[in-house]
């Protein structure tokens, strides 16, 4: 019953604090949209100057490029210096010769892809049939946004709950209401549970917002079950919340909560699947094993891209539960510093 009193109070406070509520609900959608706009663009079609190429190659190049023109090497260099073209292609001594503008890696690779595709279709000496590509998971349409999408969803849930929960619990301490509460018969576990459930209610709504928006508005690739996805995001939010209230013990003011962002939050984004870690040093992979977001993002990725179910990601879910439980117990322990009872 006392747990419920805390839940009710948090709900009332949130209702009054419209800005924070908006931050929690709207801000993730806004940032997600921005990332979508930036990452989800169509493939870049390079602009190429050519000289001395056989017609079939030129024809094929036309299909793969945004702009195509013919000119001498000097003219091409001039055009690249002016930033209007990306590469110069010619054939010297039977070998294709490519001069790249070179300052933008993604454009470089776009040029190389276009050139390779064109040359391949020209080199018809091998009379093999067109190869057949099938996808075990995902599809040809799966792009960067789809791949990092699950990580982003996990991150936003984690980030905003961490900030709001941390600051809210910190205020309880700095405004003296924590002491007042501990002068009442409330048990320490009731206080922590009240917080987890009170914010839990809002994190459910927040998760619902983010997941719905990502899948149905931004059309993020998703073959898993909606409610299973929601379950993981909520669990992740609970972990973030209990970590935030715990860390707020070590902060004296709101600004010091913000100082946890580069230390606790940002490394998790980098190490939890935004980039492929398999090529990195062993120690980075080991560090990532201690981060809740690693497991949340992994489970979300498995679900959204590979259509995994709860039972397929049971390990990740179990680890998240352990994190949340340990943080929860530590919260109760830390409150002993205020009242031993």
């Amino acid at each position: 019953m006392r747990v419920f009193a805390i839940v009710k109070r948090i709900a009332r406070q949130m209702k009054r604090d419209r800005r924070s509520l908006a931050l929690m609900m709207i801000a993730p959608l806004f940032v997600l949209t921005l990332i979508w706009l930036v990452v989800d663009g169509d493939d870049y079609e390079p602009k190429i100057v050519y000289d001395n190429l056989p017609d079939p190659i030129v024809e094929s190049l036309e299909e793969h490029t945004g702009e195509l023109t013919t000119g001498s090497e000097e003219e091409a260099v001039q055009l690249m210096q002016d930033g209007e073209y990306d590469a110069y292609l010619s054939i010297d001594d039977q070998a294709p010769h490519i001069l790249l503008e070179g300052s933008e890696p993604s454009i470089n690779s776009a040029v190389m892809r276009a050139v390779q595709d064109s040359l391949k279709s020209f080199d018809s000496s091998s009379q093999l049939n067109e190869h057949v590509v099938e996808y075990l998971y995902g599809s040809a349409e799966l792009n960067l946004f789809d791949r990092i999408g699950p990580v982003l969803i996990g991150f936003f849930v984690f980030f905003f709950v961490f900030i709001l929960g941390g600051i809210s619990f910190l205020r309880e301490r700095t405004h003296g209401t924590l002491e007042k509460l501990l002068s009442t018969p409330i048990r320490r576990w009731e206080l922590v549970s009240g917080y987890v459930l009170g914010f839990g209610f809002f994190t459910i709504i927040q998760s619902l917002f983010i997941v719905t928006f990502a899948i149905y508005v931004l059309d993020m690739y998703m073959v898993g079950l909606f409610w299973e996805l929601l379950l993981v995001t909520i669990l992740l939010a609970m972990t973030a919340l209990s970590l935030a209230t715990l860390l707020s013990t070590f902060a004296k003011n709101e600004f010091q909560i913000m100082q946890f962002i580069p230390i606790v939050i940002i490394p998790q984004v980098f190490f939890a699947g935004l980039f492929n870690l398999e090529t990195l040093d062993q120690w980075i992979q080991v560090i990532s094993k201690f981060m809740p977001l690693t497991y949340g993002a992994e489970a979300l990725q498995q679900m959204m891209i590979r259509g995994a179910h709860i039972q397929d990601v049971w390990f990740e879910i179990l680890v998240l539960l352990c994190f949340a439980f340990v943080f929860f117990v530590l919260n109760i322990r830390v409150l002993r510093g205020h009242r031993t009872l």
Binding site: R9, R12, Q13, R16, D17, H175, G176, T177, E179, K180, S183, T184, P185, L341
Partner: peptide, 17 residues
């Protein structure tokens, strides 16, 4: 604790409520 009422030196109130 059950039978005690405590008033702290600083006002421990929820400002938004």
């Amino acid at each position: 604790i059950d039978m005690t009422g405590y008033m702290a030196q600083s006002d421990a109130l929820y400002q938004e409520l």
